[in-house]
Design a protein around this nucleic acid. Sequence first.
DNA 1: CTGTTAGCGCTTTCAC
DNA 2: GTGAAAGCGCTAACAG
Lengths: 336, 336
Amino acid sequence: MAATIKDVAKVAGCSIKTVSRVINNEPHVTEEIRLRVQNAIRVVGYSPNLAARRLVLQKAYMICLLMYPGFYQPASALLSRIMDIGYSENYDILIEPYYPTHKTSKDRLANMVTARRFDGFVTTPPCDMDGFVADLLITYKIPVVQINPLDRSKNIPYIAGNDYQDACLLTQHLIGLGHRRISFLNGPRNMRSSLDRLHGYRDTLARHGIPYDPALIGNSEFNFDGGYTAAQILLKSPHPPSAIYAGSDEAAYGVIYAAQEMGVQIPAQLSVCGHDDLIFSKTIWPGLTTIHQPIDEITEQAVLLLIDILKGNPPDPLQIILPSRLIVRGSTAKAA
Amino acid sequence: MAATIKDVAKVAGCSIKTVSRVINNEPHVTEEIRLRVQNAIRVVGYSPNLAARRLVLQKAYMICLLMYPGFYQPASALLSRIMDIGYSENYDILIEPYYPTHKTSKDRLANMVTARRFDGFVTTPPCDMDGFVADLLITYKIPVVQINPLDRSKNIPYIAGNDYQDACLLTQHLIGLGHRRISFLNGPRNMRSSLDRLHGYRDTLARHGIPYDPALIGNSEFNFDGGYTAAQILLKSPHPPSAIYAGSDEAAYGVIYAAQEMGVQIPAQLSVCGHDDLIFSKTIWPGLTTIHQPIDEITEQAVLLLIDILKGNPPDPLQIILPSRLIVRGSTAKAA
DNA sequence: CTGTTAGCGCTTTCAC
DNA sequence: GTGAAAGCGCTAACAG
């Protein structure tokens, strides 16, 4: 049986309340007694019982990171930092998968919410696809911070990247290299980032007086197979593009694979860009030119923001957009 | 304020003990009252308070997955399944990073153990590098299940793959393709899998009467940079290998990168194998021949095993080894 | 500055 | 078959 405050009080020769005061750094304790208690804590090997604290404080001390499996893998380094943040603030952080289209997933979330298992939530897209999560949490008055939310019209705190601007950056890069026939591989239609990236691409073309050609738009679903298939179609077309902006790194991998298979040389005959800067994008051959959205920083900040809100210190801008970086590697070169 | 058993009891017109009986599916309740209580639960929207239950039962209902960041990334699908398993058994599963060489990391673990934050642990290598984790948990009598443990001499439950046999499989594959000068890129010396893979490689060569040549052994640390550097050295040597078994997929990526850069064609001039079957190994060009250790299944089984132990139903073999699969892709071909 | 008391929501004796 | 009462370890309110 683990030691309790009673044991500590007995050893220190004081009441349990005094022990409680010392543990929680409350005032009104003489230095002498404080030291005596701290010593007693060490002697009996005491550490507070979380369940008891949670019960009496009516707080779960738990945060839920609601993630759509397949959308984005939290690298272990990030995970590590997030858990550290939680730990230092006394929160356990749980990563829960969530499929917005599965009824069981929704039911489970509803359970967790009504049971008040978590003090707050952080969500990734497309968990917020249909507004179910947001509505539920708002109804039960449970704080949320969204990562890259699909719908930014609601007044929910979020941390996000700037997909539109990022796409402009990438398109600009290709145009700067002399490319004029630039393909764009679109992603899922219900994803905000797909649309934003497409718009960035279109607007940048327009700004440079390059006409928009629907024949150059492929559909990749932002995954490998989609990129592979779309590239095959585009490269076999009578008037193929000189550059493909794949919309996502995974799709870009598919493009590169298809090109290699067809004997199309990258970047000599075809420039390829991705978008996301997955960890392997620097290790495939040739290195992939892409956009590095600071997703780790975004996630980290989302957790910090949520904790601030939970502590009752909501910072002033509750909605923050972080800038990205263009990463130029070997997969793009001057147009032939 | 959420509803409690008291509220339910009031609505159902019975005592709280009866409500408790219904919640926990205990006998000695007439069907009529049971129904009345179940109805009342729905009416008041009751769900049990976990903290209270934890307090009175003296159980954390928490499992810790101790992971070495960088060793292995739990794919989100796996994560999803693990959380599901935990959820269905009423356990929260927390993923905690652990650096066996960091004092802060050890201190934190010690804290968690003494505070009895978790009912049990699952560890990945090399968390068990120095025996600290195992000793600590054994001292405090907290159940552990190890994944691919480095030291299997202790009597601790584990789920593991068979690195030795896997390496044999891969080496065999290369020899079967007619390769005789086969390089092996070693990993960290303190990792059991490095040694086992090396031994499998050596023994298989021996079985086929191929002499072991230390000049063909490179050091990759099982990562991209290591593989890249080692490949450069090997390929520039006067008598280069016709195949490189990279010891890990990440190292294999480095080998492929280096080869492409030097204009060495894969697989025509050089066959390359990895080991691990990371998710991107099928999407790089050419697809990587490798070993698929069922790491997802291993992890899943480890969690299930731990829960069985926690429930007091330890199954008979507490140490299980799961077989792997050879995955042949485009990166290996007949020797020239 | 310190201690006593009550109670968070639940399960567990032990009567009835 | 059912319920009253005690208590898990802690914090909050209130005396002293």
